[in-house]
Design a protein around this nucleic acid. Structure first.
Length: 504
RNA sequence: GUCCCCGUCGUCUAGCCCGGCCUAGGACAUCGCCCUUUCACGGCGGUAACACGGGUUCAAAUCCCGUCGGGGACGCCA
């Protein structure tokens, strides 16, 4: 098959803000479809909204997509056979198509003012009628319209919607039909001369030979207008696939008040791109059989099909994303996690900006120890507080911990450490274990009764990583010069005993 | 309000198009047990759904109609 026969899809965001997770899924499905079919994935920047579009958002957007691994075959930066890939560079094209539609009487000038239209709309709604444009200017005599325009009266251009129902095919939803009674003659060019989204999107998709329009279902009721435009222009109508909306837990459209919604948010939280992609792929699509969850990129490309996209809206589930992220965190090569995680610890002020080899080696062991405990890398500094921060008072203040020390034996256990480790320098994991066993024999405490008090004394919590790895890490950390001093085991025990004393 | 879309465990979903294999499968979450001289990880197991009402049929999650519920669109925004 020739390349020109292959599907061509596009992702067409407007650079008016951060890349939203819903748009990312749209981009992903487009990309998967293109990669699966050997087609082309086009990136087009929709910046006809001059007021809100900003260059920095465009730059960010492309960076976000690269981070996610969504590469495009054609776009404003790499070019392609159907330039330009930025709408603001294309105004004259839109203008000439509009002129042609006027000439062929498929579109007409509309002199109605915004206020007038708003009034009509309100009235229609109040009367329970379909709030569509009355078509008043449609019947205007051409010569008269021309005269009024030359007299300087502002006029928008409207497309004539045909007098029959408009049908189109949607891969996700099947055949969709709209009665022409419910669709207004859409404005395609504003009275300012600036073309409107619903119009340029069709021109662009047609110009770029887009074969499959895959987008959010908020566009579904725009589609009849666009189909009418394709037909007026005599251009082939593409296939559509409208993806359902992503909702928040309250079943409302996912938005900022639900928390993280942009790619940047997730990256900053320490979510891996492959976890995000895997999760989003599963949100609205499932493989046949539906019993597989882990999908590396290649498998996703192999298995993906638009026919299997579900039409129902989906609620974004952070727990499942976390689960996938934990999975990929564990799967990643340690070096990758080390460097990513180090960034989070640096920003939290726990590691120096530039670390020598001994610090880096230590930090890597710290990360290895703690990473299995987190959903997202951003939780690492918090987790690391067991190493960097000691606060015996606070530890004893907690309900759970004070219960442990309500038992006199718990106090005796910790006291047992004082003299035994006083001269040990450095304290090894082996020595620590030996001491613990001595205390076990002496006090008769074992299991939780033995380990809970010791843990609380050392890290402020009765649960945490294995002592065999924890002790050496604390001891070595205490001898490194770090932005935040790591207290040695001895210091911890002493301070804790002091706090216990004080409590009495 | 009108139009459009959607409706299987709490959540994502498989099954639906082509009725019987569905005693409705998987995953996340949750609960329990095991592992662990703590916890987490891991392993094993449990709870949990065809929105409702009518049809059609020997047989309906699957087909038809209605109701209810949710979302979206109705713009000289994208």
């Amino acid at each position: 098959m020739d390349k020109t026969d292959k599907p061509r899809v596009r992702f067409a965001p407007s650079p008016t803000g951060q890349l939203h997770i819903g748009n990312v899924r749209t981009a992903l499905y487009n990309w998967l479809f293109a990669r699966k079919t050997g087609g082309s994935f086009v990136l087009r920047i929709e910046d006809t909204d001059v007021e809100r579009s900003e260059k920095r958002f465009e730059t960010q957007l492309m960076e976000d997509m690269k981070w996610l691994g969504l590469d495009w075959d054609e776009g404003p930066d790499v070019g392609g056979p159907y330039p330009p890939y930025r709408q603001s560079d294309k105004m004259s094209v839109y203008r000439s198509y509009a002129d042609r539609l006027i000439r062929e009487q498929k579109a007409y000038y509309c002199f109605c003012t915004a206020e007038q239209l708003e009034r009509e709309r309100q009235q229609a709604m109040a009367e329970g009628r379909q709030p569509i444009y009355s078509g008043k200017c449609r019947e205007l005599d051409r010569d008269e319209a021309e005269r009024r325009r030359t007299d300087g009266e502002a006029a928008a251009i409207r497309l004539k919607i045909p007098e029959h129902p408009i049908r189109f095919h949607d891969i996700v939803r099947g055949n969709v039909e709209f009665s022409n009674e419910v669709v207004s003659d859409p404005i395609i060019v504003r009275s300012s001369g600036m073309p409107v989204y619903n119009y340029v999107v069709v021109i662009d998709d047609a110009d770029m030979k887009i074969t499959h329009v895959i987008r959010g279902d908020d566009h579904i009721s725009n589609t009849p207008k666009q189909v009418a435009l394709y037909e007026a222009l005599g251009l082939p109508v593409p296939e559509f696939a409208h993806l359902s909306t992503i909702l928040g837990p309250d079943r409302e459209r996912l938005s900022k008040r639900h928390g993280a919604t942009s790619v940047a948010n997730f990256r900053e939280m320490g979510v891996l791109p492959e976890a995000l992609m895997n999760y989003l792929a599963l949100l609205g699509w499932a493989p046949s059989g539906g019993d597989r969850e882990i999908f590396p990129e290649d498998d996703l490309i192999r298995e993906f099909s638009l026919e299997r996209v579900t039409p129902a809206p989906a609620i974004f589930d952070n727990d499942k994303l976390n689960w996938l992220n934990r999975h990929y965190l564990k799967q990643s090569p340690p070096e990758r996690i080390h460097s990513l995680a180090a960034g989070f610890l640096q920003r939290a002020g726990l590691l120096p900006e530039t670390a020598d080899q001994s610090i880096t080696a230590w930090a890597n062991r710290l990360i290895d120890l703690l990473a299995p405990y987190v959903d997202r890398l951003e939780q690492l500094p918090q987790r690391a507080s067991i190493i960097f921060h000691t606060d015996p008072q606070a530890a004893l203040a907690s309900e759970e911990n004070s219960q442990v020390f309500a038992n006199e034996k718990a106090i005796v256990v910790v006291q047992g450490f004082g003299p035994r480790i006083a001269n040990d320098s450095p304290l090894t994991a082996e020595r620590f274990k030996a001491v613990t066993n001595e205390i076990k024999a002496e006090t008769g405490a074992k299991g939780k009764d033995l380990f809970h008090p010791v843990r609380i004394a050392l890290i402020g919590s009765h649960s945490g990583p294995d002592f065999d790895r924890l002790i050496p890490l604390i001891e070595e950390g205490s001898r490194l010069s770090l932005p935040v001093h790591v207290e040695s085991v001895r210091e911890r025990v002493q301070e804790f005993l002091a706090a216990l004393e004080q409590r009495k």
